[in-house]
Structure formats: C-alpha cells, structure tokens
Design a protein around this nucleic acid. Structure first.
Length: 450
RNA sequence: UCCUGAGUAGCUCAGCUGGUUAGAGCAUCUGACUGUUAAUCAGAGGGUCCGGGGUUCAAGUCCCUGCUCAGGAGCCA
C-alpha cells in the first residue's frame, strides 16, 4: 500500500536492506567506545541493533557527535546494512552519517539491576527496556487475537458505559464520582449487564474495555484498573459458553506463538509449555474438584483472630482460594475449567442448575503454571422472578435493576457469557512475574504515578 | 484491611556484641584503546544512613513512633 507518510526504514525489517544504505531514527540503548570505534545499540521502537561508527569512515564532526552520545539520546543514523556473524541479529549497520535530535543527560535506568519500586516510579521510561518492550508487543497481539477471534465468529463489538448508576456485582468496592445533579456515579467494574442487553439486540456480542475495582487487593495478580473482554451470547447455555472460552484461549495462545516468537525468546519463555495449550482443556465440576482436594488432603485456610487455621477435609460450599487452585492445577499441563459452583459464593445473576438448586451454572478457567483464574463466566438467570429474588436477597437497589429485569420481561432467552482478564492472560503467556509489568501504566492500591 | 519483611551514594547492596574519618560494585565525569555487546585499564567527584523522639560518654547500629515500599492473605479477572 502506498503511504502518504514518510517512509522510514525499521530495524525489524533489517534483513530486507542487506547491502543497502538506510536511514534509521531512534534512541541510543547503549554505547561502547573503543578508540577509533564506537558501538551504538540503536533502539527504534521495532527492535534494537548494533551500529558501528569507525573513525576512518565518517567526518570528524560526525565522529565527535558519536562520542558525545549518551544513553537514550535520540539520533538519526544513515548507514550501510552489512551481514555479520558476530552480531546477534546477524546484521550490523556501518554508520556513514549521524545527527543528534537531543542529548539525554543522566538517564535513570542503567543497564544494571534495579529494584521494583525504582522501576515502577520510572514506568514511563521502563517501557523502553527490552523485556517491557517485548511484553507490550505480546499484549498487543493478545488483544488483536481476541478481536480477530470474535469478529471472525459472527460477534459484534458493543461498548458498555464506564460511568454507571450502581454496582454490577454488589460484592466489590466501587470508585465513586460526582455526577452533576444526579448524585453519584460509579466507574464500571464490568460491562456484563449492558452486554446482556446488547446480546438480546444483536445476538452475539463482546465488550472490550477497562474495569475498575476499588478492592484493597495487594498481590501480583491484582490491579484497580484492568482490561477485560466480555462476550455475551443469546441462546448459549453453559456448555456452549465453556466451549467458546476454550476455543478463544486456544486461539489467543496459538496466535502469540505464531506471531511473537522473537518476543517470547526475549522473555525466555518456555515455548513448549505454550505449545501444549490445545483443546480439549480439562473440566471439573466443583463437586469433583472438592473431592480431589479432600483426597489430596488440601485444607481450607481460614483466619480466626488473625491466626491461620487449616480446616480439613475441605468443606463443600467454600470458594477456592489461591492455595487450592494452585494445588489443583499442578497436575495439569492445560487450563482447567471448573463449573457448577455453590450458589452462595457466586453472583446474583447466575442461573441455578435445574438438576441441583444448590449450585449455579458458573464456570471459571484456571491457567497453567500458576496463571490463576483468567476467566469467570456463567449462564445467566433468565427467569424474572428468580432474578428478582436474588436481587432482594443480596440487598441490591431494586430500582436500579429495572432495566435489567426488563430483559427477562420482554423476550427472555437462555444466554451466557464470560469475562477474560487481559492482564492475567498476558501475564500467563509471557511468564511475567507481576501483573504490573503487563499493562503500560498500572493502577494499584497505592500507586497512581506516573 | 490483616500478617510478615525492608528503608545506607543516581542504582544494587555490605556495614559484626553500639566506638571515633560510613564502604564496594555499577552508573556519571576525564584520559587510553579497531570488535565491544555486564568491555578493559588509569584517575576524579558523589552521603539529611527514611522522618521525629528517646537511651548512652558515644547511635547507621538499641528502644518508641510516624511515613514509604515489597511479599502474602481475603476478594476477584
């Protein structure tokens, strides 16, 4: 395609330019001087490659400029692409000309080790380093894979509002803000309820957007602002819902494997583990999972007066925490879907199992390698009276849910959906140590800068 | 919110049972080098020991308190 914009050469396409003179714009990731030779690691956004300035090849002023370069100075380089077995990429650039956009002074992030707190305070600069660069590229791929998957399967993207009049699920804490003369509005913690309305209008839909949760969670898998994709399908039952979730996750992982091998290498990710992520995944009912926990002597851990107490055998009716999920997943090399949880631990909008009113038609997908819960979903309650009963039982503001109840009054149908956390998925696929590394600017309980 | 741990140079850390002038590596600056990619060699500069209070002849070190950060729990995606 003919571009109206300036045509630049990029490091990711270096092999195409072998033997040719090209122009690169970028930043100095690192520099080593060796007398009449200066080695520049040039970073241009698409990758990093070594450029060699030899005193005999350039004018005196260009050589002096090259000597002046500091880490993260921005430069324009004109040079010849040469094949070289000594180079990591297989190519080097012999510099013919070099000009400086800006000389950087005392760049805080050096090529040596840094602590988490320091790096987080410099997140706006940390994004430039190779690991973070690779993670952001994988994140972009995960998002593209999700959109491709749904768009290619007859879904329409609909956007749900960020400002909402009340809680979607009453459980989590909400961020509150003033809303003109109408009192308070809340930042959305899920687009699901609006996705349900959209599904009854368009059939198969998905929302893609941020979710906000003011929970006091301080772990390596929690953010107060995170991104979520939430498909919602009219006429899908729980079985269809689980099948779809499985197809989607397989598609995402295989897409990244196909398109981001270079990044996964930079991240030193064990690719063989990802290659195994092929359907069918494992599935266990909550009952079966509890049986397994009991047989393997995995207790429930509960806090009583600040003392941790182990309760065994694991009692039916309790939700699983991180210790139970991790124990359960150790046996699996593919994700596992756990379905039909006790109604008491799940949200009000989930449909009761007609075969057992103690449980709801819910499902969670747990990722391998301690990836944790990446998906939560369910078939929705489609009976007006049962739904109203649950709303009252949870003490939710009934008036705020009239529009939601309308969906059960005017052509109610079986329908299902789920939410996939983008950051948890990217964390799992990249093997990142902490969720704060997989979103450009993380928002956490005690962090909102930069 | 609860539990546990940490805070010393720009960064990562050492600093003993309290002892007189607080150290190292990296980074920065100056110089040397045509193959460096954690370069090497020679030299230089750089400190509110997190804040406040206390004990003591003497506190980076011990005690109290506040703040900040990290890890975990619960909740969740």
């Amino acid at each position: 395609m003919e571009s109206r914009y300036k045509q630049y050469n990029y490091i990711e396409n270096l092999a195409q330019y072998e033997g040719k003179e090209i122009v690169l714009n970028g930043w100095v990731a690192d520099k080593t001087e060796k007398g009449k030779l200066i080695f520049i690691q040039l970073r241009d956004g698409t990758g990093t490659n070594q450029c060699v300035v030899f005193k005999g090849n350039v004018s005196e002023s260009v050589f002096e400029n090259a000597k002046k370069l500091t880490q993260e100075s921005s430069v324009r380089i004109v040079g010849q692409v040469r094949k070289d077995d000594r180079a990591q990429s297989g190519y080097e650039i012999d510099v013919n000309d070099l000009s400086i956009y800006q000389l950087s002074q005392n760049y805080p992030i050096t090529p040596k080790e840094h602590g988490d707190a320091f790096l987080m305070a410099h997140r706006h600069l940390w994004l430039r380093s190779s690991r973070q660069h690779a993670i952001m590229r994988v994140r972009a791929s995960v998002i593209k894979a999700i959109k491709d998957f749904f768009d290619g399967n007859g879904f329409k993207q609909v956007d749900s509002p960020m400002l909402t009049p009340s809680a979607c699920e009453g459980t989590s804490t909400l961020f509150e803000t003033k809303y003109f003369d109408l009192g308070s509005a809340y930042l959305s913690q899920s687009g699901q309820l609006y996705a349900e309305a959209s599904a009854l209008a368009l059939g198969k839909v998905y929302t893609f957007g941020p979710a906000f949760r003011a929970e006091l969670s301080k772990t390596r898998k929690h953010l107060t602002e995170f991104w979520m994709v939430e498909p919602e399908m009219a006429f899908f039952d729980l079985q269809d819902d689980m099948d779809l979730a499985e197809d989607m996750v397989e598609y995402i992982v295989q897409y990244v494997l196909k398109n981001n091998l270079r990044e996964l290498n930079t991240l030193e990710r064990d690719i063989t583990k990802l290659e195994k992520i092929r359907r069918p995944f494992y599935r266990l009912s909550y009952d079966e999972a509890v049986d397994w926990l009991q047989k393997n002597d995995i207790p429930l851990i509960r806090k009583v007066d600040n003392q941790e107490v182990e309760i065994r055998p694991f009692p039916w009716g309790e939700d699983f925490g991180a210790p139970q999920e991790e124990a359960l997943m150790e046996q699996f090399d593919k994700p596992c879907i756990i379905h039909r949880y006790p109604a008491s631990v799940k949200a009000f909008y989930m449909k009761r199992d007609p075969n057992n009113p103690e449980v709801v038609l819910a499902m969670d997908m747990l990722a391998t390698e301690k990836g944790g819960e990446i998906i939560g979903g369910s078939q929705r309650e489609d009976d007006e009276n049962l739904l109203l009963e649950r709303i009252r039982h949870e003490n939710l503001p009934e008036d705020d849910y009239q529009w939601y109840l309308d969906l059960r009054r005017y052509g109610s149908v079986p329908h299902s959906g789920f939410g996939l956390g983008i950051e948890r998925t990217v964390k799992w696929i990249t093997g990142a140590a902490h969720i704060r590394e997989v979103i450009p600017f993380p928002r956490m309980i005690n962090k909102i800068y930069p």
